[in-house]
Structure formats: C-alpha cells, structure tokens
C-alpha cells in the first residue's frame, strides 16, 4: 500500500443542501492502484462514482482526505491525468484535428505548429479516424466522436487515463469495437486507467480490478474484485472463460442486493482502509451454462 502509484486516502465529499442540511455522498474512502492497472468502479447512481473520478481529475476537491499520485498530492487538474468524458465534450467549433491538436498544444506549449499537427494526426490514426481529420464533431457519429475524445486523451500521453462511462452513449456494436481498441491501446502502452461503468460485462472485459461501491449517501467501498480472467481474454469469447459467470454473478448479485444491504451487516473484520479483495474464481467445476451465486 505504501508504494502504490495512485492512492486514495480517506476522502470524503459533502454537499451543502439548500435547506442548511448537509449530505455526505461518501466518506472515508480508501483505494489504491498500481502503475499499469486498469480499475473499474461499479455502483448505483448517486454513490459518488463521478465525484470520485472528478476528484482524481482534480476538477473537484475532497472535503477530507487526499489523493496521492506518483508521490504527489493531487491539487487540481493536471496534464498528468487525461479525462474521457461520458458526453465526449468535444469542442464543436473545432475540427477533429483541431480538438486533438488543442490538447497536444496545451501539453507541449513549445512545439511548433507542424509538430503538434503531426503528433495529433498520429493519435487520430491510432483511433482509426484517419481521413476524418477535418470534419467537425457535428458531422461525426457518436462512436467517432468518442474516438476523438479518446484520441484527445491519449495524445497528451498522460500518466493516468480517467474514463467516465465512456461507452454508455453508444450502440452495442460500436461499443464493442471501441472497447476492443481501448483494451488494445491500454495493453500496448501499459496505461494506468480508472473507469466508471454501469456495464458489468464491460468491467469484466476491460478491468483488472473492479471496485464495488455501496449505495449513497455515505457510500463506501464494499470490496474490490480481483478479475480472475486471463490477461489475453477476448471480448467475443469472454463468456466461454471458466471464471466469467462467477465474476459476473458476483457483480450482479452485488448490484441487485448487497449494494443496498452491505452497510447494514458489515463483516466483523471490515476495514475501510483495506476493503476486502475477493477473487470470485470458479467453484469447480463450473457448469458450462449454469448460473451460480458466488
């Protein structure tokens, strides 16, 4: 825990309600990640996932606690952490190239125009948008827009990538392809990623570790699921992996039932600072199409 790449240390976030009553979204939240980790956070709406991500991005600040990344406390937005927004947040008056180049030029303020452009074009090519550089966001499909968002985030070569439900607005087919590409890129570059998702399959496919958050208010990390699936898993035969259903059922079970009841019956050895790590590995032998509780 001491040498983690990213460490969330007891953060809390409270909002002042108009009536004077405060409400605590979450408190005393602890969690850490190693370099190259892909973590996904799952929880119901209102549990404060997005707030956590915003705090990591530096767009929001915790009322208590701190976040330390690579030995330095996070005190605001930084080019070290790139955000892929749910709504892609492209600047509609700029072209694809303009959007990516805006990020590149912000990262490398001393670069020449040509160098910025070449760098931006490289990342546009990585996300497969070569040929669409001069289109405006309005001329792109939802999937293409999110590709631009990904290219923009990757182009600044951040220490950490933060993704806020990046694929939730896309149709299933596009979502799949994009997930493949994000996984490929992240594996190739060893990117550290923190992702919010609602999609259990997406979490299983992409993440190495899945953080389960209880319902808000006063949400906390219930447990951390260590993904037992092999690193070279592929989306199309994911469901054929022996541990797939174990993990999937565990997650769904949490979302359906335990996210609500977890706090009422805290396990006796529960430590907020070290949420239990579970690895819902196969209870052998796993029936090929059986559904079982973990």
């Amino acid at each position: 825990m001491t040498q983690s790449y990213l460490s969330i240390e007891g953060i809390a976030r409270r909002f002042q309600a108009p009536g004077g009553k405060g409400s605590t979204v979450f408190e005393d939240l602890w969690f850490s990640m190693n370099k190259g980790d892909f973590a996904a956070i799952i929880g119901h709406s209102g549990c404060g996932k997005t707030t956590v991500l915003n705090i990591l991005a530096g767009l929001d600040a915790p009322d208590e606690g701190a976040v330390v990344m690579d030995g330095k406390a996070i005190e605001g937005p930084s080019l070290d952490r790139a955000v892929i927004f749910q709504s892609h947040a492209l600047l509609p008056w700029k072209s694809v190239l303009g959007n990516v180049a805006y990020a590149v030029a912000s990262r490398h303020r001393d670069w020449s125009r040509d160098r910025v452009r070449a760098h931006a074009e490289r990342f546009i090519e990585v996300v497969g948008l070569k040929g669409a550089e001069h289109k405006k966001p309005a001329e792109l499909s939802g999937g293409m827009k999110q590709r631009v968002g990904i290219a923009r985030a990757l182009s600044i070569e951040p220490k950490m990538l933060l993704m806020d439900e990046p694929f939730s607005a896309l149709d299933a087919l596009t979502r799949g392809t994009l997930q493949d590409e994000v996984r490929r890129i992240c594996l190739e570059t060893g990117q550290t990623v923190f992702m919010i998702t609602h999609d259990v399959d997406e979490a299983i496919y992409l993440a190495d570790r899945i953080v389960l958050m209880t319902n808000g208010p006063q949400a906390c990390v219930a447990e951390i699921v260590d993904n037992p699936l092999p690193r070279d898993r592929r989306r199309l035969d994911l469901h054929k992996q022996p541990d797939f259903y174990a993990v999937r059922n565990h997650l769904i079970d949490f979302l359906v039932e335990r996210s609500r009841t977890f706090k009422d019956g805290l396990p006796p050895d529960y430590d907020r600072r070290r949420p239990p790590v579970v690895r819902p590995a196969h209870l052998p032998p796993t029936p090929p199409d059986g559904v079982r509780a973990a």
Binding site: A57, G58, L59, G76, P77, S78, L79, R81, A82, V83, F85, S87, A89, L91, Y102, A103, S106, R107, I156
Partner: peptide, 14 residues
C-alpha cells in the same frame, strides 16, 4: 458555456 468544455480546458491546464 458548457461545463464540460471548461473542464476539458481545466484538465489540459489551460
């Protein structure tokens, strides 16, 4: 101005 556009600029340390 959409908050997300401002957030883009903030995360880019503009």
């Amino acid at each position: 101005v959409r908050k997300e556009w401002l957030n883009v600029a903030r995360t880019l340390e503009v």
